[in-house]
Write a protein that binds this DNA or RNA. Structure first.
Lengths: 196, 196
DNA sequence: CTCGCCCGAACGAACGTTCGAATGGACCCT
DNA sequence: AGGGTCCATTCGAACGTTCGTTCGGGCGAG
């Protein structure tokens, strides 16, 4: 076992426990028991509890952002970009539930020093999504501002940590398709003109 | 000042501080300072910190559910029901940001005894929304299951506590309209058939 | 012998909660 | 009217626990 592997083990265990119990409710003694390391031993790998949270957030966000950019770049047209973006986000979410739960739920738990780095990643992600939406409906004054549409999409996707079970009857890719359809066409019937 | 008024003052102050700092990060001493009551004095009104959270959640959820049912009942047709439901939720959210933030963010922080009561209210709300959606598209096998559509709507609306500022350029009623339009028709152009 | 790695034991601080007493108005009996 | 008793309300001070973190040293491979 190398140093890096043990740090990774600590981080992934911490992400799991944070995801289940929440950051504040998790004690270093919980992590000690769960990792098999001693209480003091963990401090050889991280400077403290907050650095654990920061590293988890930073690494996860970097990975999801990188993947999202790759997914968008691999697309052919505007609708395809959206489809791939949603699919990547939902699939990644399902495969890294604990980390994403921490990312969604503990977005404001870091002190300024660490928060800034995560916020920078977050801005890049929001910007990416907003661009995709702008290309999708290049109207100068759409009925729904691109910013609102972007955060509505984030809400739809990030909220799944409260209800979705990736091992249930709906596969991640399936959920992504449903989200994409919903987000593109709404719940109104396929027929364009609705009552009223 | 009556007993009830002081309890109300304690609860609303606690909701505010919980909303800003989070439940776990808030100490009883914080609440003592913020309410002007003594540390021990607060225990005359509630049995402990957890009852504060429970009362806030229970009262807020009851109120939002009651209002939502009234809004739906006042509507004329299926689309109107959805419109009023979204408007009520968003407007209520904007007017009670702290409480709704606590409700959204601290949904799993209660012990079983209290959680059950809140979960019962939550189920009623989910059921209400699902019914509205089912009436909107009575298809037996819609492209998007009603349950998924319901949680997508909740996600879109509840996520606003992370980004929306009710005192900003977008008024709550305006945001509700945008959400309704987005949810009904999607981001795709009014023209029904999209590229691909 | 050195150094990267690990840990038992302890430290000081902060936490939620409790205790016992003090306050003051309402009410009763004479 | 006055004296006495109760009870709702308040709070300073402390209690026991648990927290994140640190200290000093131990251990094994090079």
């Amino acid at each position: 076992m190398t140093y890096d592997q043990r740090l990774e083990h600590l981080l992934s265990t911490a992400a799991h426990v944070f995801g289940v119990k929440g950051y504040y409710a998790t004690t270093m003694r919980d992590l000690s028991r769960e990792t098999g390391m001693s209480l003091a031993g963990m401090y050889y790998y991280v400077s403290g509890k907050e650095e654990l949270l920061a590293l988890i957030q930073e690494r996860t966000f970097s990975e999801v952002l990188e993947g999202a950019e790759a997914a968008v770049n691999a697309a052919t047209d505007a609708v395809d970009r959206l489809q791939r973006l949603i699919d990547h986000h939902v699939t990644f979410f399902a495969q890294h539930i604990d980390e994403m739960k921490v990312l969604s739920h503990e977005a404001d738990s870091l002190s300024d020093k660490w928060q800034a780095k995560v916020d920078a990643l977050k801005r890049r992600y929001v910007h990416l999504v907003t661009d995709v939406l702008a290309a999708l409906s290049p109207d100068e004054t759409p009925k729904v501002p691109h910013r609102v549409a972007a955060y509505a999409l984030f809400g739809m996707m990030n909220w799944i940590y409260t209800w979705y079970d990736a091992t249930g009857p709906i596969a991640p890719a399936e959920l992504a398709e449903q989200f994409t359809h919903l987000y593109l066409h709404g719940v109104a019937r396929p027929a364009p003109s609705v009552t009223q």
